[in-house]
Write a protein that binds this DNA or RNA. Structure first.
Lengths: 196, 196
DNA sequence: GACGATCTGCCTACTAGAAGGTAGATAGAT
DNA sequence: ATCTATCTACCTTCTAGTAGGCAGATCGTC
C-alpha cells in the first residue's frame, strides 16, 4: 500500500509543469523520465500514448477546478469576493512562479494542432469556467453584490478574457506584477458604488 | 530580378501560418518544405537554423506592425477610432479565419521554452504594442476622445489583455464571434458620455 | 499454511520515423 | 568566374512506441 501507484500522479505533475512552459509539443517522455526518475518505457505502462497522458491530465485539471469551485462557493458567499479570490489565486501562482500559467490556456492557443481527444478536453475546461463565471455574475447582479454594465454571460467572458490576457502579458513582459495591475481596475469596475 | 528571392518570403509566410496554429515546436522544416514546394535543405540556404527563421519572422512581424501603426495614426485622428480599427482588424482576421491568432501571442505563451533569441523578439513585440496603446490612451484622455478610469498605461495594458484574452477565448470555444462580443463592451466603456 | 497463477510496476533493448542540420553537386544568372 | 538557388544524399539525435523479461505483491485453491 502506501504509494498506491502515485508514480502516475508524479508523471502527471511533471507533465503539467512541462506543458505549462512549452505546450504539447514542448515536452517528451524522455523529459518526464528525467524528472520522475523512471524509464521512458515505464511511463508507457501508466499512459500508453502521449494523447492518453495529456487527455487524462486535462481531464483531472478540469475536475480539480470543479472541486475547488464547489469549495469556494461554500466558503465565500459574496459574488465579488469570489471573483477576487479567483483573481488572487492566479496572482499568487504567477508571483511565486509556482504555476505561472494555466495549462489549458497554453493548450487552447495550440488548439488547431492538438490531437482531437485533447482538444475536446481543453474546450470543455473553458466551457466549465465560462458557465461558472456566468452563474457568479448572474447571482451577483441579482443580489447587488456586483455592478454589471452588460449581460452576465458577456461580463463573464470579458472577465475571463481579462484574466487570461493578463496572464499572457505577465509572461510576455516577464513581470508577474502586471497581472494584478490589470485585474485591480477590472474588479473595481464590478464593485457596486457604496452610497447614493 | 522579378522574384528577387521571394522564396524566402514564402518560407516566412508558411512558417507564420504553421506557428499560428501550433507554435514553435509545432512545425518543422519538412512542413514548410511541403507547403512551399522546395526541399528541406533549400530552406537552410535561406535560414541556416530554425532560430534564424523564427527570429527573422518575429522581427518582421513587429516591423510590419510598426508600419501599420504609423499609417493608422496618419489616417485616423480620433483615439477611440484607432482602438476600434485595431479591434476590428483582429475581429476580421479571426472571423474570416485568415490569421485567426497572433503569432506573438502563441510564442509568448511558450516563452519559457523558447530559444532566447526568439524570446527577446517576442518580448519586444509586446513592449511595442503596449507603448503604442499607452500613447493612444494618453492622447485620447487629454483631448477627451477617450473616457479613462485608470492611468493611461494601465488602461493600455487592460485593453491589450482584453484583446488577447478574447482571441484565446474565440479559439478555445471555436467561436469567432466571441471576440467581438467581448470587445464591444470594452470599447463602450472607453467611449466618452455624449451629453451632460 | 503452501503452491502455483496472475497482476503490477519497472526494466533493458529495440524499432521506425521525424527532427534539425551538413556536404557537395548542378544549373543558370551576373 | 563567381554567385545564387536549388538539388540529392546523408548524418545524428530525438521521438513515440513496442517486445519481452524479471522481481515482488496478491490471490485462489487445495
Amino acid at each position: 500500500m502506501s504509494n498506491l501507484s502515485n508514480t502516475s500522479d508524479e508523471i502527471l505533475a511533471s507533465a503539467r509543469n512541462l506543458i505549462m512552459s512549452g505546450g504539447y509539443n514542448g515536452f517528451s517522455y524522455a523529459d518526464i523520465s528525467e524528472v520522475v526518475g523512471i524509464r521512458k518505457a515505464s511511463i508507457h505502462h501508466h499512459f500508453p500514448s502521449k494523447v492518453d497522458l495529456v487527455r487524462e491530465l486535462v481531464k483531472r485539471y478540469r475536475e480539480d477546478g470543479q472541486a475547488s469551485v464547489v469549495t469556494l462557493e461554500q466558503n465565500v458567499p459574496d459574488a465579488l469576493d469570489i471573483l477576487k479570490v479567483y483573481a488572487n489565486h492566479w496572482a499568487k501562482c504567477i508571483e511565486d512562479a509556482s504555476r505561472p500559467y494555466c495549462v489549458c490556456a497554453l493548450l487552447a492557443s495550440e488548439l488547431p494542432s492538438l490531437p482531437p481527444e485533447v482538444a475536446t478536453e481543453v474546450t470543455a475546461f473553458f466551457r466549465f469556467i465560462s458557465s461558472w463565471l456566468t452563474a457568479v455574475m448572474e447571482r451577483g447582479s441579482k443580489n447587488g453584490a456586483l455592478n454589471l454594465t452588460s449581460e452576465p454571460h458577456i461580463e463573464a467572458e470579458a472577465f475571463l478574457a481579462t484574466v487570461y490576457g493578463a496572464m499572457l502579458s505577465s509572461r510576455a513582459y516577464g513581470k508577474p506584477e502586471v497581472f494584478s495591475t490589470i485585474l485591480g481596475p477590472a474588479l473595481s469596475r464590478l464593485t457596486p458604488t457604496v452610497s447614493h
